[in-house]
């Protein structure tokens, strides 16, 4: 079945509306459906996500700070503006330099996660391994508190104390 609007693509969204007892049907392709505000996008394009998040600022996270000089990465010379423009970062160091500004974006893209768990390079220094475990424990602790699992939270807190 062809899309009723563009008359070219296959209609994949079939809308049935019943208003005042009158039934109307619409058959649209995904693109036309989106243009008409019907149907859903299967994923948010990255650029949209980036520009929405970075232009909106840390809404609800913390009050906006007075304009200070924009941070510049000493390693690659990137600024946030440049990141916004390119949609990719300039170097690994940017994650530290722009950490505060990137955090809302990272959280949004990864369902609230702010800490890595999973594979770790074998060559990582022992110090870093320890840091990683601490960071993961902190994340688990936050999660336990959020779920009000205080028994688990207490255990995690004790473990963290051991590390320190």
């Amino acid at each position: 079945m062809q899309c009723e609007v563009c008359q070219s693509k296959e209609a994949t969204i079939h809308l049935t509306e019943i208003a005042d007892g009158v039934r109307t049907e619409m058959h649209l392709c995904e693109q036309c459906a989106q243009e008409q505000g019907v149907g859903t996008k299967s994923y948010i394009p990255l650029n949209e996500l980036l520009s929405n998040l970075l232009s909106a600022g840390p809404k609800g996270e913390e009050p906006a700070e007075p304009a200070e000089s924009e941070p510049v990465c000493p390693n690659c010379g990137y600024t946030l503006d440049k990141f916004r423009d390119k949609a990719v970062l300039g170097c690994p160091n940017d994650y530290e330099v722009f950490e505060k500004q990137l955090l809302p974006l990272i959280k949004k893209a990864h369902d609230g996660a702010t800490c890595h768990c999973g594979k770790v390079p074998a060559k990582i220094p022992t110090d870093s391994k320890k840091q990683l475990e601490i960071a993961q424990l902190r994340q688990q602790l936050d999660e336990a508190v959020r779920k009000e699992d205080y028994e688990l939270a207490a255990k995690l807190r004790d473990k963290l104390a051991e590390f320190k």
Binding site: L46, V88, L89, Y95, L102, I106, A109, H116, K129
Partner: peptide
């Protein structure tokens, strides 16, 4: 990075 895992050019691939 111990905190963020494998560092990628785009934060959407991080970890």
């Amino acid at each position: 990075s111990p905190k963020y895992g494998y560092l990628t050019a785009c934060p959407t691939n991080l970890g």
